[in-house]
Design a protein around this nucleic acid. Structure first.
Lengths: 344, 344
DNA sequence: CAATATCATTAAATCGATTTAATCGCTATT
DNA sequence: AATAGCGATTAAATCGATTTAATGATATTG
């Protein structure tokens, strides 16, 4: 029982395949096709469960109804959650997702973009690594809808969705200062990506305003957690005077907790903590760790809305938009009184 | 600057497109095409960076080099990790992944399978929900390579990769018994899936062997964590005599920890804990929670290896295989002496 | 009534590849 | 000298849709 093609349908009904195609694509009225013919075709198509071959369709029309989604690492809970929400919205709008993890590797990303292009995806959602500016630009020049998220590329003018990174860390750091902490470290992955730089800057700004000395440790990213924990531990051991630590990403945060646990440090008596990204680990740590929660749903919603918009309006000359979303600062592990004071 | 097609190449070189196709598909020798011609074509193709249109290719050959991956929920860290590993291996072998989350919803899964089929994916990797037996069977009957994982469908004979669920919970429960715990509860999601039933059975078996009374709480799955935590909390409040709790999945485990935290229970003095699936939360909880770790890499490796095998050997009459992998029982939060005793 | 519109439908071209079957020029065989 | 065989290449069919341009039939118009 082979799959039926449009020709089979046409033959069986003694109608040309052109007519079938018109009817199935809702152009019956426009083409003034007889009402009973339309019904007869629709009935038969429903009966045998015919579905047009989408490869053939794509080949002819140039559309694939596939969106390419490139995250940094699908096994990172932040990206997994975003991907999940985007997937749902995309499917509801008739789009499928092909996804992949870039590992922030420029060459890998380049390959992946070329594979996506090859597959004729209709649009791209990308958390871009550095160095990929030209490839993205050429996509855009070809008229491809591209939405960046989590970070952006200053040299590329396109739509992107981000959070207010600088204010988030600035605000949280200021909170630490107000609590009376003096020696506040910031530990992050070494990266020139916009979001990482903005977060670092927010921290520095808050310290500078209060004439405090910054302690920054940048760690080279690695799949191997040991290689993250080792320098982290060395840093903490070197700076015995620290009374608070700010983790720049969820991954640094969990690695940091492991180190702190293994060193037997007490939170927040020995060391107060804040992490970027909120996450079960931080809520369940005892005492729970304060964290900056990104608005995952809003990010996913914005990304897909912007992209669908671009897909549906063929005019390429809408000026691109940047959406900057607010984060939530979830203060934990401090007394009720302090919470109130900070939240005003 | 439009994308080049094989015709453009052919015209430019004054050769037929047939020849180009043969050369590009490595059939030059077989077709005895002149050596310098081959070189001339290859040089030009490399020069202009021509890449065959894969849609057209798929349409003609019926192959897509796409693997459909259906997990329960990509935002669940277990599935996210598996997906990531499968993705890597697939890309290395020239396959792309289209993935989706089934939510264990039979109807949604049916739709998704039909979408995958429509896209002509070459093979399927599925963590199947119940009730999808017929759809999977029909895929297999059509000659599609299908590999199930995490669970299997008893009424469908196909390859699958699983862990030894029954032994895992049996062994861990027995450990609790040996530690002297008497009132051990098992909290899980209500599900007839094979892995869930096997885990439950392992727990029951261990208790039965020791003439202990089982306390089982089955919770209806929900996206909303409140709806998981509420019945969980009610259960714990009802059975004040419990001295240990076994969580059947990572999600139940983290929700359980939240409830236990909010109730102010001390672990393991008030309540000893074990969770299925190991996970940062359990390692960082204080004191850390014992957990059964699935061999993520081995699962992903097995799955993709089996599938690639099926894709490469066209003969469909290799008997299907079931791969059952061992888990690691990570005992935490007990004294060194006890650990040694248990591990022998 | 011839010319023109309108209707309803369809033949044929097209998308960009693969693959089958044919072609053409030579050489070897009988 | 006719035929067969081979080597190198290609014309044409095919995959399954969409879309343009055309067709035949009927209705309208001046």
């Amino acid at each position: 029982m082979k799959k039926l093609s449009i020709v089979d349908i046409a033959n069986h009904l003694n109608v040309s395949k052109t007519t079938i195609s018109f009817i199935l694509n809702g152009r019956a009225q426009e083409k003034r096709i007889g009402k009973e013919l339309v019904e007869r075709v629709q009935k038969f198509v429903a009966e045998v469960g015919y579905k047009p071959n989408s490869l053939a369709k794509s080949l002819r029309t140039g559309k694939s109804n596939i969106i390419g989604l490139m995250v940094e690492d699908i096994s990172n809970p932040f990206f997994a959650a975003i991907a999940r929400l985007i997937e749902d919205r995309a499917y509801k709008n008739g789009y499928k997702i092909i996804y992949c993890s870039t590992d922030n590797d420029t060459n890998k990303t380049r390959d992946l973009i070329s594979m996506f292009r090859d597959r004729h995806v209709d649009g791209y959602i990308i958390a871009p690594p550095e160095g990929i500016e030209e490839d993205i630009s050429s996509l855009i020049n070809e008229g491809m809808p591209v939405v960046l998220f989590d970070r952006h590329l200053p040299k590329v003018s396109t739509d992107f969705v981000e959070i207010d990174n600088l204010f988030s860390t600035y605000n949280a750091t200021r909170h630490l200062v107000q609590q009376g902490y003096k020696n506040i470290a910031y530990i992050t992955f070494a990266s020139n990506q916009t979001q990482m730089q903005a977060r670092l800057q927010g921290y520095k700004d808050a310290l500078a305003e209060n004439d405090l000395k910054p302690y920054v440790q940048e760690i080279v990213f690695s799949q191997n957690e040991e290689l993250i924990m080792a320098p982290l531990q060395a840093f903490l051991k070197k700076h015995k005077n620290l009374d608070a630590v700010f983790f720049g990403t969820n991954h640094v945060g969990t690695c940091g907790l492991k180190v702190i646990n293994s060193m037997g440090l007490k939170v927040p008596d020995d060391l107060a903590l804040i992490s970027f990204d909120d996450y079960d680990v931080f809520k369940l740590f005892s005492p729970p760790v304060s964290a900056i929660a990104q608005p995952i749903e809003a990010i996913a919603d914005s990304v897909i809305t912007v992209l669908l918009n671009k897909l549906n309006t063929s005019s390429q000359h809408i000026s691109s938009q940047s959406i900057i979303l607010k984060t939530d600062f979830n203060i934990r592990g401090s007394s009720q009184a302090v919470k109130k004071a900070v939240l005003q």
